[in-house]
Amino acid sequence: MTDLIPLTVFGAETPRQTAPGALALAERPDIAIASLALRRGTAGAAPFGLLLPGPGGLAAAQAHLAFWTGAGQWMVLAEGLADTDFAAALRDAAPGCSVTEQTDGWTVVDVTAPEPLIARLLERLVNLPPEALAPGRATRCQMHHLPVHALRLSSSRLRLLAMRSATASLWHALETAGQRLALP
């Protein structure tokens, strides 16, 4: 076990949590991420019991989550496994597939708020019809000029995967939007 101390994207040892307005923002560095792509001739995969979803889809199985990112491609998330070699575990669970470690490629930000507020927040940040991010849907989109994977975990929970290097910019945009939405 390495003695190097990992830091969050904000340079801290503990994840950032703020509550601008009625939003709750939480950085989730505990979540491991790896991409999964079918190779030619591979019939399919069902790692960790996940039923890999189609376009716009989101699938969950216990602590794992998968969402579609392209033809024959998914991103797989695992809570609490960020300090492990999750890509290797996924490779074992999906033989014949290409797997790429993505844990630190993205910062996971969980946004929690009452449903109407989530709707208003998305209206400010995402140029997509609301149904594209209805509960149970996931999509890649642009927020604040940044590519973001947006996962609607439930009516009141939104999970965003932001480029790690640009997380501070997206966080600032989320905080600003949250504060403005709280105004009368």
Binding site: S35, R40, T100, Q102, D104, G105, W106, R164, S165
Partner: peptide, 13 residues
């Protein structure tokens, strides 16, 4: 071609 690509710029320091 059987090729899969992905950006890992941010993943690795």
């Amino acid at each position: 071609l059987d090729v899969q690509i992905l950006s890992t710029t941010d993943a690795w320091a």
